[in-house]
């Protein structure tokens, strides 16, 4: 269906250019290569921030060509933006394009999000991406033999931390239920649940159920107080 693909190309390019940040991020480029010289991802992947800007200037075909693995190679360090003599922001362009890929549920986004479900679940419920119980030895075998130790007696070791808010294992700190409720509202209003749903309906359901359970429990608690 060549027509569909052409339409998609065109729409992606227009969405990119309609982003209020776009014209701050893409100004002009003389192929000097300073950005790529600083780029960590360029050393390991077929990725160059210079090419990101060149592709934006070249038009929709070349932008579309980046929507696969290309945009996911960037490490988001923003070295490129800091050093560009034109004040372009290639890392910022990548962030916009990732947003578009996710919003449209593109293949590359689905692939990237797959192993991400635990992080998404944590962040969307607790507003913490990382929790002590995430560092499981089977998930991080390359982190060495001390990781299993850290998981042993986790609760006790967390109790020993002198910061009272940190004595938790399923979130990085104890997040008040009212705070979780607020985060839920923000994510709902800003369309974040929709993004997850497009890419992974099953996960979206799990997250929403989990959050709603917590929120419902909180609301019931509040009602009791009154």
């Amino acid at each position: 269906m060549p027509d569909d693909k052409d339409r998609e190309k065109h729409e992606i390019f227009e969405e990119l250019r309609a982003d209020p940040r776009y014209h701050d991020f893409v100004r002009g480029c003389l192929n000097c290569g300073v950005c790529t010289g600083w780029c960590p991802s360029h050393r390991f992947f077929d990725y160059a921030p210079r090419i990101v800007i060149q592709n934006c200037l070249a038009g929709e075909d070349r932008v579309y060509g980046m929507m696969g693995e290309y945009i996911w190679a960037c490490a988001q360090c923003f070295s490129c933006a800091m050093v560009c003599p034109f004040n372009n922001n290639p890392g910022g362009v990548v962030a916009i394009l990732r947003e578009i890929a996710v919003r449209r549920g593109m293949m590359s986004a689905k692939r990237v999000l797959k192993p991400y479900s635990r992080v998404l679940l944590k962040v969307m419920t607790f507003g913490n991406q990382v929790s002590p119980d995430m560092i499981q030895p089977d998930f991080f075998p390359d982190w060495g033999p001390k990781i299993p130790w850290a998981q042993e007696d986790l609760e006790l070791k967390r109790q020993a931390i002198p910061v009272p808010t940190l004595r938790t294992v399923e979130s990085a700190w104890k997040v008040a239920e009212s705070t979780m409720n607020e985060l839920y509202t923000i994510n709902k209003e800003a369309g974040i649940f929709d993004l997850v749903e497009v890419n992974d309906p099953g996960l979206a359901e799990v997250i929403e159920d989990d959050v709603q359970d917590k929120v419902a429990a909180y609301l019931a608690e509040e009602a009791k107080k009154e």
Partner: peptide
């Protein structure tokens, strides 16, 4: 990391 947020959120 995953593009699952946006400027508004």
């Amino acid at each position: 990391g995953s593009g699952t947020s946006n400027v508004l959120a």
